[in-house]
Design a protein around this nucleic acid. Structure first.
Lengths: 253, 253
DNA sequence: CGGGAAGTTGAAGAGCGTCAAAAGTAGTGG
DNA sequence: CCACTACTTTTGACGCTCTTCAACTTCCCG
């Protein structure tokens, strides 16, 4: 159950040292491959030791929970590799996935003293854990971190609003295409081929993210295949055959 | 078109001076009735002059637009009185209302150099306008403002995530009840009767907020009336007859 | 009083959900 | 290596919630 979907052989950030350094290096943050992507980049090289002093690494197997909604929120996290999902539940089991987090993403905005949502690994994942108290006192000392977090929160808010438009007003096909383009955009940012997106997420999770059922997601995939807009291989790779047309669909034209 | 829904006779914050002072007072921010509710409260009394130096008051009539998605985002706002809606559009006219802003709410998170959404007055409204550049340089000098904004952004994010759960997974009735309880909660915060909520928002706008049509909203209102859960008077006041039962419905029980 | 906007109600229809079954895929152990 | 099992995905048939379209009523403001 603990096999990593992003093994050493294909590091999540190509051309950089493998993740295992994180636990061994005496100044792990300085060597951290995801630093340029994360909030940690708001500190200068020689200030990183203060961060390194409070972090601890964390490995999760696929499906392993990180925390549950309502728990005391004592830790914040940074995703080093893999994919983590964040979701809310209704009492009868209805679930809404709020977002998927990937390499470099920060997990810990939008919360009070308790977590406002649950989090669990989708694929195997490596995280960096910050004790909340200690991070807060570090923020007192280095307000740049606060500034960076504000920028992050603003961005997250914009993404959340776009998702509200999707959930409130888009059709099933438009939703799925929007989702695929989000993954494509992310692949481009990571330096991968933007028209060859790897989808490590089940139909069920995609449904719970898009406000649809598994079956509707599956049918929408089939439709897009029949329309000649995508190709799906058995190993969960989706090829975008006409990203112009897909863009138009996602935006509601 | 410019009649104020919140006339001087019933100031939005009871027991305080009427709003018209804002334009006349030499140190308007010090006398501002909504300061304790707003980001402006992060400055000390004697620092408020710096804020006062950059703000300008603004009055909107019902339905009057404030800005459109895509415009250069040169100004941020604080709502002094009335109600402002914030929304996104799809090319074919489908609309999703992202949120309604009331007294004390800050308008200007979640944006880059351009506005990520459109904003327009619902009722007549009074706003306080900050030039973005100047507010940013004030933030350099007084990092407490930044801290406060981060807290605000975090809260907004939590609200947005709750709304995603609503849009993705709740039924029409659950959505409407959630909406009414949101208004009720706000009324309680403002010191009004929490079981007597004033709804200055049309069925159409409620629908675009909840991801429903006007008709479905209307039918859901009728259902709730028939179930003996609410009473609706002709002047848009809704009485919550059993807030316990309503809470249960909104949470999906 | 009159006209336009907002709200309500009904009938019909579409899109997505539900239920069920079959096919595909992956991990396990003999 | 293959069979066994469990899970995921796909597809079909059917049903239900919400939408669409339309008519009518109520409310508001000049």
């Amino acid at each position: 159950m603990s096999k990593n979907y992003y093994p050493e052989a294909q590091p999540a950030v190509p051309g950089r040292k493998a993740i295992s350094r994180l636990a061994l290096d005496p100044s792990p943050c300085r060597a951290c491959p995801v630093r340029p992507l994360s909030i940690c980049d708001s500190l200068a090289e020689d200030e990183l030791q203060h961060l390194a002093a409070i972090v601890s690494p964390l490995r999760l197997g696929p499906g392993q929970p990180l925390f549950d909604e309502g728990e005391q929120a004592d830790f914040l996290f940074n995703v080093i590799s893999g994919c983590v999902k964040v979701y809310k539940l209704l009492p009868d089991g209805r679930r809404q996935i709020i977002g998927f987090l990937f390499t470099g993403d920060f997990l810990g905005l939008a919360m009070t003293d308790v977590y406002a949502y649950s989090a669990e690994a989708v694929t195997g994942a490596e995280l960096c854990r910050f004790p909340r108290r200690k991070l807060e006192s570090l923020m007192e000392r280095y307000p740049q971190i606060e500034k960076r977090l504000l920028g992050l929160a603003n961005h997250e808010l914009a993404v959340a609003q776009e998702q509200m438009l999707l959930l409130g007003r888009k059709t099933a096909k438009e939703r799925l295409v929007s989702f695929l383009l989000m993954l494509s955009k992310r692949a481009r940012m990571d330096g991968s081929d933007a028209d060859q997106v790897f989808v490590p997420i089940t139909r069920n999770d995609i449904g719970d993210y898009l406000g649809l059922t598994t079956e509707t997601v599956s049918r929408s995939f089939t439709q897009l295949r029949n329309d000649g807009l995508i190709e799906v291989t058995s190993d969960n790779k989706v090829t975008l055959l006409d990203s112009g047309a897909l863009q138009a669909i996602a935006q509601g034209f």
